[in-house]
């Protein structure tokens, strides 16, 4: 897979390691990793390639207390390569205990979404009228429980108006407006952290908790994000560029966590 990411001044070929410039996928992995910064000793639950790599990268670097899995029921002693066997394990988390952990709360999950609105309501269940959907998707899975009980972020590999919609067809994951309507008791464990896409990083750090553009990935114009979003984003002044991966992060992604470059199948260069 070609690695022809945008080449800025800061990440031209490095003489020391021979590292080439970061691809968009690698920028996304690091942006996903940033979601878990400051979380300490919680399960980093992730869905999607860049998100899973991000969790393991965060644990490898700035958030060593995180717990990560082999993609199955095992908590690995060290973060392992994507799709690799668990190796040494430090814990056991079969589905039943994972579901209890959602209730317990020591968990920050990064999910996918087929639709998301400006308040962070998401849909992975069905498109169209629920009673007889135009397109049946997965079902709500654990999204209702995840969002009401755990900090939740989202990884969306294709930022488009098909996903970023004015209103989702079936609320699987609970957004800020619906959480607020439940009152302070029921919503006290609800919190959406960030939304990472192939174009940008977004969050809900606004007075009315509607979605805000935090940064655009290197090479992406703000207007492109606006055009790919089916509702009005909050944009405050000049939007900064998403942080580029450090050389050590690139090495870990390329040599340790994803030597088969599966990330490039999710986000093409």
């Amino acid at each position: 897979m070609a690695r022809e990411g945008p080449r800025g001044r800061g990440d031209a070929m490095s003489a020391a390691s021979g590292t080439s410039a970061a691809t968009r996928a690698e920028i996304c992995v690091v942006a996903c990793a940033e979601a878990w910064r400051g979380d300490g000793e919680v399960l980093a639950a992730a869905m999607g390639t860049c998100s899973i790599l991000g969790a393991r990268l965060a644990r490898h670097t700035f958030e060593p207390g995180l717990l990560t899995t082999d993609g199955g029921a095992l908590l690995t002693a060290e973060p392992v390569a994507f799709g690799a066997p668990a190796g040494a394990v430090e814990g056991w988390l079969p589905f039943r205990d994972h579901l209890w952990l959602v209730q317990n709360g020591r968990r920050h999950v990064m999910m996918g979404a087929s639709q998301i609105d400006r308040h962070g309501n998401t849909n992975i269940s069905a498109i169209g009228d629920w009673a007889r959907p135009k397109s049946q998707l997965l079902g709500v899975r654990g999204a209702p429980g995840n969002t009401i009980a755990n900090p939740t972020s989202y990884w969306i590999p294709r930022h488009s108006t098909r996903v970023f919609v004015p209103q989702v067809d079936m609320v699987s994951g609970v957004g800020f407006d619906r959480a607020a309507a439940l009152g302070p008791g029921a919503s006290r464990f609800h919190g959406l952290r960030r939304v990472v896409t192939d174009l940008a990083v977004l969050d809900f750090g606004t007075p009315d908790r509607s979605m805000r553009l935090v940064s655009v990935h290197p090479g992406v114009e703000v207007q492109r994000v606006v055009t790919a979003t089916g509702f009005e984003l909050v944009i405050e002044g000049d939007v900064p560029e998403t942080r580029r991966p450090a050389e050590e992060e690139l090495r870990l992604i390329r040599e340790v966590l994803d030597p088969k470059a599966l990330r490039d199948q999710e986000v093409r260069a």
Partner: peptide, 13 residues
């Protein structure tokens, strides 16, 4: 009893 489901459309459908 559980919190899971509160605020979601599961309670609608």
């Amino acid at each position: 009893p559980t919190r899971a489901g509160l605020g979601s459309d599961v309670l609608r459908v």
